[in-house]
Design a protein around this nucleic acid. Structure first.
Lengths: 156, 156
DNA sequence: TACGAATAAATCGCGCGCAATCCAATCGCA
DNA sequence: TGCGATTGGATTGCGCGCGATTTATTCGTA
């Protein structure tokens, strides 16, 4: 699918070209990562987005829905049902803040905190699957983050 | 969210670490790309996956469902309804192959071919939004593709 | 103090992605 | 020739992502 392009920046052209394919590469890599994570996380009964929320909470408990959404760039229409599922599994509680009833505070249960132990093997497996060194990954991550920031800036 | 890790390869550790976050970066960049594409593609009435299928068909018409799926790493349970929507929009036709009735051949209509003209401005807009040079993007794409290949290999 | 604006979360509808399953057509081999 | 195995798609069920709307609460200000 990759095909080198020769057009100058911003001008129309006949076919698809590089700008598209960086996106396709990322899209496709994202799906590929998901397929690697799925069997690992299935042992904990988690999906990847659910795992991300748990990681965020392990890093810092007692957050609001919006606070979690800020870290993950997801909004309440995605998070509310996801959090309800995690609540249903007994990993966290959702409760309105008594000082501001608009806010829902999300807190880990002991079971949710405990799940972190089971999750300890995950990053090593993922690292293994990438087939890359930590240094390579660190550098690559930096570049992708820079790209994401540019995209977010361009989007307003 | 990024936080540097110090653990040696493959060993358990207390918190999430780099291997996870490369994935998060890609996941998040993928969503960010989608948000940039959405308004552009909305003018053509396409979603990003639909656009990808159209790009594949513009590159080479008259493909099977499986053939498209091979290029995009998607299977029939994703593609069948997507292709039906594109068919409903009048961009393509779906017909069983007369020599092998198991196979469905997907072909562009004149309208579908014509849509390519409207799509010509898209890559330039995307390139602009990335805020990167073509050379940078080309290199980055190569690294991400290598990562994806590793993941697919690790996954069997 | 009352009332409109702003804010936080929830709800709804739709389109992916994918595992699991099903079905029909074709192939392979005795 | 027949029959089990394989293959290509379709279907179903579920969990995201997100735009659009709704509801409840709080804030700002006259």
């Amino acid at each position: 699918m990759p095909e080198t392009a020769r057009q100058p920046r911003g001008e129309p052209h006949d076919g698809p070209f590089l700008g598209d394919f960086v996106c396709f590469s990322i899209y496709s890599a994202s799906l590929a990562f998901n397929r690697v994570y799925k069997p690992l996380l299935a042992e904990m009964g988690l999906t990847y987005p659910q795992y991300l929320v748990m990681v965020v909470l392990w890093e810092g408990d007692d957050r609001t829905v919006g606070g979690i959404g800020e870290v993950l760039s997801l909004d309440s229409s995605t998070l509310t049902p996801l959090l309800k599922r995690l609540e249903g599994m007994g990993h966290l509680t959702r409760a309105r803040d008594s000082h501001d009833e608009r806010v829902v505070r999300v807190r880990l249960t002991p079971a949710g905190r405990n799940l972190r132990l089971k999750a300890r093997v995950v990053p090593g497996c993922i690292l293994e699957a990438t087939g890359m060194s930590m240094d390579e990954l660190r550098r690559l991550q930096g570049e992708i983050d820079a790209l994401r920031r540019n995209l977010e800036a361009a989007n307003g």
